[in-house]
Amino acid sequence: MDSLAATPGTGPATSPLPVIRAARKQRTFEDLPTDRTVVLGVLNVTPDSFSDGGRFARPDDAVAAGLRMLYGGADIIDVGGESTRPNAVPVDPAEEQKRVLPVIETLAKAGALISIDTMNASTAALALDAGAGIVNDVSGTDMDPDMPALIAERGVPYVLMHGRGDARTMSGLAEYKDVVEDVLAEIMEVRDRLYNGGVSPEQIIVDPGLGFAKTEEHNWALLRSLDRFDVLGHRLLIGTSRKRFLGTLLSTSGKAAPPEERDSATVATTALAAAAGVWGVRVHDVAANLDAVKVSAAWNG
């Protein structure tokens, strides 16, 4: 694949981006399938993500991975520049933007529908300018106060994920009287902030936030109760892919399965979630999970 030359005055191009022939039309939210669950491919442009940290930290590697997802059938590419694994070190928005913006621009040119995985309104705004079409915000109850106005102004879909605290504190905040009821109530509180900022109900996609301030049993309880989220009246997004609670489930001799050995269990959760009618799943292995949602759709007729 040909590469872009270094921009004059910026020094040598140590990690050039592939030259992408522009697609005739970039995918939009309205182009997404309505006869099956939507598949979001996870693209971590970070050195420290729990599953694939460092593999796609260079822009050219990230673009190549994103293109593989796109051409492999991913409906949306979810690009993130800050790890949200437990105890991850926060990333300055400027560094986050340096990581993700070139990748978003190139993948958008190739025609991909992109969601920006960020907790920062400033990063979300620049990502939307660069070609992203969805904001996926994992900040939970600690939402950036500038986020509602941005989402209202841009009119884009917004993923409201439940969570408490940040990567360093969330594990100590996993206490609930009734995890499903408490999560629903806290989602409604954050949703009210969005409504008050001018965001419309149709823009909101809800994510229960599996693994974010949740124990393993909390995660399973939420998965067993997906139908209870219907009361919110929004699309539902589920992210189980390679998460720790699946590794624990697959433990051998007391040792949890590593992330790369959790894909089959992820596919099983995808098939069950799709059968339960969720709008979307966020996954690392696009091909296998796309197969799962197609089988589920055919099974349900």
Rank of each mutant, 00 (worst) to 15 (best):
S3L: 13
S3H: 12
L4W: 10
L4C: 05
A5G: 08
A6W: 02
A6V: 01
T7D: 01
T7S: 01
T7W: 04
P8S: 00
P8T: 00
G9R: 00
G9P: 00
G9S: 00
G9K: 00
G9L: 00
T10K: 03
T10G: 00
T10R: 07
G11D: 02
A13R: 03
A13H: 00
A13K: 01
T14Q: 00
T14W: 03
S15N: 05
S15A: 11
P16N: 04
P16D: 02
L17M: 03
L17S: 01
L17F: 03
P18L: 12
P18R: 14
V19A: 08
I20A: 01
R21D: 13
R21G: 13
R21T: 15
R21M: 06
A22Y: 02
A23L: 07
A23Q: 07
A23W: 09
R24C: 12
R24K: 15
K25H: 15
K25W: 09
K25C: 09
R27V: 01
R27K: 10
F29C: 09
F29W: 15
E30W: 10
E30S: 15
D31T: 14
D31K: 11
D31I: 11
L32M: 09
T34E: 09
D35F: 09
R36M: 14
R36C: 14
V38M: 15
V38R: 12
V38N: 13
V38D: 13
V39N: 10
V39A: 10
L40I: 13
G41H: 05
G41N: 03
G41S: 02
V42I: 15
L43C: 02
V45S: 12
T46K: 14
P47R: 06
P47S: 14
S49G: 12
F50L: 04
S51C: 14
D52R: 14
D52H: 13
D52L: 05
D52T: 13
G53F: 09
G53D: 07
G53N: 10
G53H: 09
R55S: 15
F56M: 10
F56S: 14
F56I: 05
A57D: 07
R58K: 15
P59W: 09
D60Y: 01
D61I: 11
D61R: 14
D61C: 14
D61F: 12
V63P: 06
V63C: 05
A64W: 04
A64R: 13
A65L: 02
G66A: 03
L67N: 05
R68Q: 11
R68M: 03
M69K: 09
L70W: 10
G72M: 11
G72A: 13
A74W: 04
A74H: 08
A74Q: 03
D75L: 12
I76N: 06
I76D: 04
I77K: 01
I77L: 03
I77R: 00
G80P: 08
G80K: 07
G80M: 09
E82T: 09
E82V: 10
S83L: 02
T84C: 03
T84M: 06
P86R: 07
P86Y: 08
N87S: 14
N87E: 14
N87M: 12
A88M: 03
V89Q: 14
V89Y: 08
P90G: 11
P90T: 11
P90L: 11
P90Q: 11
V91D: 02
V91M: 05
V91C: 07
D92Q: 06
D92M: 04
A94G: 05
A94C: 04
A94K: 14
A94D: 15
E95W: 13
E96G: 07
